[in-house]
Amino acid sequence: MLRKCISAELIKLRHSRIWLILMSLPVISVLIGSANFYMNQDVLKKEWYSLWSQVALFYGEFFFPILIAICCAYMWRLEHLNKNWNIIMTAPISAIHIFLSKLIVVGVLLTFVQVFFCLLYLIGGKVIGLTSAIPKELPGWLLRGWIAAITISVLQLALSMRIRSFAVPIGISLCAVFIGLGMYVSNLGLFFPHSLMTIGMGVLSQEGLPSVESHILFIIMNLLYIVAISQGAIYLLKKSDVLD
């Protein structure tokens, strides 16, 4: 049943041109970041690491969470239109499958975004003429960024499910970005989904997670958020009346 739900979600995305939205942010991030790196090479001397600090800073810190919010709001948009809530809730599909299928599809889309961003980063570095080896931390930054992106997606899917407005969850995401940055600065980064992204992608400190224990703690915190928020959202989906 889950597989059918996923294919239904994919059908809903057909002709939506959401790929345009998903591709726009990595392209702009890498273009601006690379141009800034190119013009300030006398100050930014750590080659690939400096380039990462330029392309990933605004991408990971501010705009990737907002892109996730747009993507998640879009996943529920159809349900909020034309009384589709009544149709979906009377169909013989469990609430778990409805929520999980959306989460899986968002996860796939975000994988595409991260891979595309990585490709552009590598192309940007090569075009600029960087000769040193590609950072060995790169797969870790991308993978941890993706895990944190899934955590944020769960939160945003839950918000967009409950809030009929398309724009309000995106506004909440913008506020959460600032709160997350504040939590990170206060060394409480592990306790807020948006600051997990900052830690995971190494956007402010490229040393990333120093030990195996901190990696485990990072994964546990993400899993905790994913499980807790999904459970809450699925419970609401089962128990509360549809939004009209």
Binding site: R17, S24, F63, L67, A73, Y74, I170
Partner: peptide, 14 residues
């Protein structure tokens, strides 16, 4: 599709 206008807002913010 309001995703496009909000994406424009995001790019504008960037």
């Amino acid at each position: 599709n309001q995703a496009f206008s909000l994406c424009l807002g995001m790019i504008g913010g960037f």
